[in-house]
Structures are given as structure tokens and as C-alpha cells.
């Protein structure tokens, strides 16, 4: 299972991140607070699923061992997934869904700007395509942050609690390991230091606009690039993988 090709690993991480966030959002289908938001969240999930599919397809092409995108998406175990712990965070309440999305969208927005200049043409083209979609996502989640942050006492309190809780999961977005460094040296990977700088700017600008207090965080999680996950992740996978486990290689 362990494939040491850095570009394969890099694509797999990108794919897993989009896939898992997409699945979390898809769980809100028919249970969002109101109809327009139900449509919005599932549309975003669909964009993310398309992006995941493009990255998985490229990963299996690099690997060239006859695996398919479905094998990667549905036939791996918990520790084989390399997504950030932020994107697997459960849909605790609407504030958590929006804050999780905003923090991730702001990351993608800057990551894909960098990655669309990658020397790897395929990665650059998927990133340039995804960037257009992510811009809409970020507008949407950002505007919700403002509405919640400037809304009622209840919404202000809830969005602040979600920001404080989820902040713990933000620093690993910018942790580079040897795979990032090898590919950055080749002009392929995004420079996570630059992404971090732009991300911090846009997030603090938004917090100001939304009257949200910047969290004072003491502790940050780490380890997703080694397959470390939170407790909820296995439960989510058992649900996500059910069909492919029960009916292996089922086709649409």
C-alpha cells in the first residue's frame, strides 16, 4: 500500500482532503437549516468531489499499478487517509459547518493560487480549475461568518465557540514534511509558508469584519500527513465506504 513516489503522495493528500470535506458536507443534504443552504452546501460538496476525482485520477495514473480512483477513495483503511483533521470534524452545528468551511476555503484559495503556477502541468491545470470554484465557496462561507458574527447574541456566541474550538486544527494545514520539501524544490508543490501568510491575512481581515475575537490557542493538533485522525473519522468512513465494502467494485 505504501507508495513512496512523492508526487503520488502529494496528489493523494489533495484528493483525500477534498473527498473527506465533500463527504462531511454531503451529510448535511436534506438537513441544512433551510432549503437554499441545503442546495449551497451540497453544491460545494459536489465541486469538492469533482476536484477529489481529478486528483485521484492523476494519482492512479502516476502510480500505474492498475488501481482506480474508486480503489483510492473507498478501499483504504483509516490510517491510509492523509486528510487534515480539520476537514473530518463532525457537523456539530451550523456554526461549526461554516467555520470549518471558511478556514478550509481560505486555505484552498491561497493553496490553489500557488499550485496553479506549479511546474507540473496537470497539477497546475486542476488547481487553476479548482480555484474558480473555491473562490465562490470562500465568498459564501465568508459572508456567512459575517452574518453569524454580527447576528443575534446566540449566533455570535455560537460562531465564536466554533472558531475557538476549530482553531486547534488549523496549524497542521501549513506543516511541510519531506514530500512537500522535495516537490517544492522541484517547483511542483505550493510553498506553505506563503500560503500561511496569505491565509492569516484573509482570516484576520474577516474576523475583524465579523466582530470575531481571534482565538488564543494553546495547543495544535498534528499528524494528518502520517495518517493520524480524530475519533469521529472511523465512524465517518464506515458510513462513506459502506456501499463499496458491501458490494465491491459496484459501478454507477
Amino acid at each position: 500500500m505504501n507508495n513512496q513516489n512523492p508526487l503520488f503522495q502529494y496528489c493523494l493528500r489533495l484528493a483525500d482532503n477534498s473527498m473527506i470535506l465533500s463527504h462531511r458536507l454531503s451529510q448535511t443534504c436534506a438537513s441544512a437549516p433551510f432549503l437554499e443552504e441545503d442546495v449551497a452546501l451540497t453544491n460545494i460538496a459536489l465541486d469538492l468531489l469533482g476536484q477529489a476525482s481529478a486528483f485521484y485520477k492523476y494519482a492512479v495514473e502516476i502510480e500505474d499499478k492498475g488501481r482506480t480512483e474508486d480503489d483510492l477513495a473507498y478501499h483504504r483503511n483509516e490510517r491510509d487517509y492523509l486528510n487534515f483533521q480539520l476537514v473530518e470534524y463532525p457537523n456539530t452545528d451550523f456554526a461549526y459547518i461554516i467555520v470549518r468551511q471558511f478556514l478550509a476555503d481560505a486555505f484552498y484559495y491561497h493553496l490553489y493560487q500557488q499550485l496553479s503556477k506549479s511546474k507540473d502541468e496537470k497539477l497546475a491545470s486542476i488547481a487553476a480549475k479548482s480555484l474558480k470554484e473555491v473562490t465562490y465557496h470562500l465568498r459564501h462561507s465568508g459572508q456567512w461568518m459575517i452574518r453569524l458574527g454580527k447576528g443575534t447574541e446566540e449566533s455570535k456566541q455560537r460562531v465564536q465557540v466554533a472558531v475557538n474550538d476549530l482553531w486547534t486544527y488549523t496549524q497542521e494545514l501549513f506543516e511541510a514534511d519531506n514530500i512537500d520539501e522535495i516537490l517544492l524544490g522541484d517547483g511542483i508543490a505550493a510553498d506553505l509558508n506563503l500560503v500561511k501568510k496569505s491565509w492569516e491575512e484573509v482570516v484576520s481581515e474577516l474576523f475583524k469584519k465579523a466582530n470575531i475575537k481571534p482565538p488564543e490557542c494553546r495547543y495544535f493538533v498534528t499528524g494528518s500527513k502520517q495518517g493520524i485522525h480524530t475519533e469521529s473519522f472511523g465512524h465517518m468512513l464506515s458510513d462513506m465506504q459502506y456501499l463499496q465494502r458491501a458490494y465491491p467494485d459496484a459501478k454507477w
Binding site: E36, V39, A40, N43, I44, D47, Y136, H140
Partner: peptide, 13 residues
């Protein structure tokens, strides 16, 4: 604008 997202990915409401 009601919503940036609508019945298909390419449309807003």
C-alpha cells in the same frame, strides 16, 4: 441575490 448556489453548479439564485 438569494443564493450563490442553485439547481446546478453553474447557476446562482
Amino acid at each position: 441575490l438569494t443564493s450563490q448556489f442553485s439547481s446546478t453548479a453553474c447557476k446562482a439564485l
